[in-house]
Nucleic acid binder design. Structure first.
Length: 194
DNA sequence: TGCCTGATTGCCT
DNA sequence: GGCAATCAGGCAA
């Protein structure tokens, strides 16, 4: 894998996405999202994810099979699945599992590593701790919207990268904001600090 | 065809 | 802590 830029950031290898979805959700904690917009580079560290499976997971968009909105969730592992939530917020997922399966990991929250100037531009007047403390806030800070739906991470200025540092302790809890399958501990958080 | 709900956020009190 | 904003699917009729 070719390093990305001056910080020797390496994109996550394809083999990373060959693991089970729950493994990927847990192991994305501490990894980086690199966003390149023109001259600006934004790097953030993932601190919260949620896994959405296909079978036996009624909370997952893919539970009822493919439709217009969730089509890219059934793409090959490493596909970016972006959907509109509550009619106004975008949420970004990494598709996992084989093509046609319909599993993904929702990227819920992150902390800044560098590129604060661009983040401030995207999140004017917002306190630092609230920059990316939710899925809709994260996409806003990184300038990610429906244009990325169905594209691959690694294309079009959006990368998942290894920061070469392990994350801290990981906690698994039920997922947020859902009404179905609320007992499943598919949300993963870490107390990592940059 | 039309109503209801939701993987949310941010403003207002 | 309450609640409005806003829209795409699901589902009932």
């Amino acid at each position: 894998m070719k390093p990305l830029g001056r910080n020797s950031l390496r994109p996550l290898p394809k083999s990373f996405f060959c693991h089970p979805t729950l493994w990927i959700a847990r192991n994305l904690l501490g990894k980086g999202i690199l966003r390149i917009v023109g001259e600006d580079k934004i790097l953030v560290r993932i601190i919260e994810t949620e896994a959405y499976l296909s079978k036996n997971d009624p909370a997952s968009h893919s539970f009822r099979g493919p439709n217009g909105r969730n089509r890219s969730m059934f793409g090959p592992a490493g596909t970016c699945y972006v959907y509109l939530s509550y009619g106004m917020h975008y949420c970004m997922n990494v598709v996992t599992g084989a093509k046609g399966v319909g599993e993904a990991v929702l990227l819920r929250a992150a902390l800044p590593v560098f590129g604060e100037r661009a983040i401030v531009r995207n999140r004017p007047g917002v306190r630092t701790k609230d920059w990316m403390s939710g899925p809709g806030k994260l996409t806003k800070a990184l300038e990610v919207d429906r244009r990325f739906d169905g594209l691959f991470f690694g294309d079009h200025g959006l990368f998942l990268v290894d920061l070469g540092r392990p994350c801290g302790r990981v906690a698994a809890t039920p997922r947020i904001g859902i009404s179905k399958a609320t007992n499943l501990p598919y949300r993963f958080v870490t107390e990592v600090r940059t």
